[in-house]
Design a protein around this nucleic acid. Structure first.
Length: 429
RNA sequence: GCCGAGGUGGCACAGCCUGGUACUGCGCGAGACUGGAAAUCUCGUGAGACUUCGGUCUCACAGGAGUUCAAAUCUCCUCCUCGGCGCCA
């Protein structure tokens, strides 16, 4: 959420930033918002004046009573009785216009950082670096879909029976690999100063709104019937919500969490995309990092989170690249976003494995996550950041493709071998 | 799920019965005193609107509704925390 004061004082600065996104709706929304806010302030002036009048009369009734001038009271009382209805009517108007204003405020996206490349869609994303080395295959590399089928790493047909499309039963060696990945990640993350967390995967509407998942991305998440609870699409939601309405101390920054949770996504609007295998599913496990810090350090922290993800993928020897996501592709919440894309030899393409966002004060303002520099000093709004470490199922697809051998077997990456009782996975008949 | 006790500023606590400007302490800030500091004293301390930048006004006691000229205080509803009982992986 943007600061309403900034919109009042520097509307043109906000407008220019919104224009980078090439969505004319935002311009209209901003105008609407400014009009609504002016109307709100006018009503407030009026209603404040009425309350002032009422308070004055109330006080004079009190002092007349004290002085025993009972004969004068009824006159003042009559005058005072006129006021509450007027206040009530105006308050009703004010409340309506305030909620209209606030819902506009909730729908406007974050301000983009100046280093975000300009572009209309994902073709405008900028590759900033590449890492790892692609191996040359002496055969045509199989797709992760075929590999998973070959090693019977997931039972997708039976999952269709129990749950429908885009579900899977993860099986045998892939289950072991999942836990190996988790162990490996925990080692790295604790060394890098993260608290480990298994958060709730059901989260209240207010918290989802605070994280920026609602109202804009309502269609992407599942809701529990008859309850104010949503299944999280990422543990970012509970982890950022964790400190809602709190006042933190600057000395504790950065507060870094590594969360492990199941994630649920409707994948609305993804019909026909990556329909097979375990690449894009309705539920998956993910290790996520989030960080809370002060505005001065958040850009440094953005690099730190990406570096953590990068170290993780380097340790698995996956060829990757770092991409700076452009203005047209970045989404509502982030002021700047890096993706880490992994190499998929069968597709001859890089695909997204990691997203690292600096959300600046956008989430923290909605969630009222504040901090003080020192005891007794005024509160300021924190910056929040998040980054994937690995979405396990998606990550597995990339690991499988890059470690395949001609006979269809899969080498287990070196760093994971200590956690499993096999060095390779062989195809099943 | 049932019974009981609670929820007041950043923190701690009073006020609630008997409606009438939210007490006090800690923390923090400014000033005074001092060679400097501590101690002490004075003033200030949240959110919002207006402002001629001197101030002015409104709101804020878990949330909501009601009674009233006036609600932290009275009435009703809801939520949350703690304790006890029940159920339970």
């Amino acid at each position: 959420m943007l600061d309403i004061k900034l919109i009042r004082e520097e509307p043109e600065l906000v407008r220019k930033n919104l224009e980078k996104r090439k969505k004319p709706d935002y311009n209209k929304m901003l105008n609407d918002l400014i009009t609504k806010d002016e109307a709100w302030r006018n009503i407030k002036i009026e209603v404040d004046a009425l309350r002032q009048k009422r308070n004055q009369l109330t006080n004079s009734i009190k002092s007349l009573k004290k002085e025993g001038k009972t004969d004068q009271i009824s006159q003042v009382l009559n005058e005072a009785k006129q006021i509450p209805d007027k206040i009530k009517n105006l308050e009703k108007k004010q409340l309506i216009i305030e909620s209209e204003r606030n819902s506009l405020l909730l729908t406007l996206p974050n301000l983009l950082h100046e280093t975000v490349p300009y572009g209309e869609d994902d073709s405008g994303n900028m590759v900033e670096k590449t890492g790892g080395s692609k191996q040359s295959f002496s055969f045509t590399p199989r797709s992760h879909i075929d590999i998973v089928e070959g090693i019977k790493g997931a039972d997708i047909e039976r999952a269709a029976k129990t749950s429908g499309a885009r579900f899977y039963f993860l099986m045998d060696e892939l289950v072991q690999l999942e836990f190996a990945i988790i162990q490996h990640a925990i080692k790295l993350l604790t060394k890098r100063g993260y608290h480990l967390v298994v958060p709730p995967t059901l989260v209240k509407g207010k918290i989802m709104e605070g994280g920026g998942f609602l109202p804009t991305y309502r269609d992407d998440v599942y809701k529990i019937e008859d309850e104010d609870l949503f299944l999280v699409g990422t543990s970012e939601a509970p982890l950022v919500g964790m400190h809602a309405n709190e006042i933190l101390y600057q000395d504790d920054f950065p507060i870094r969490y590594a969360g492990f949770s199941t994630c649920f996504r409707t994948e609305a609007g993804a019909h026909g995309k990556d329909t097979k295998g375990i690449f894009r599913t309705h539920h998956f496990e993910k290790i996520e990092q989030i960080s809370i810090t002060n505005p001065e350090n958040s850009w440094k922290e953005h690099d730190y989170l990406f570096e953590t993800a990068e170290m993780f993928w380097q340790s698995l020897e996956i060829p990757y690249r770092k991409v700076n996501i452009c203005t047209g592709d970045i989404g509502l919440v982030a002021a700047k976003k890096f993706d880490l894309e992994g190499w998929y030899p069968s597709q001859n393409a890089y695909r997204e494995l990691v997203s690292t966002s600096n959300c600046t004060d956008f989430q923290a303002r909605r969630l009222k996550i504040r901090f003080r520099e020192k005891d007794g000093m005024p509160t300021k709004i924190c910056h929040t950041l998040n980054s994937t470490v690995i979405a396990i199922q998606r990550g597995l697809t990339c690991i499988l493709e890059n470690n395949q051998k001609e006979d269809g077997s899969i080498k287990v990456p070196k760093v994971l071998q200590q956690y499993v009782d096999f060095k390779e996975i062989t195809p099943k008949i």
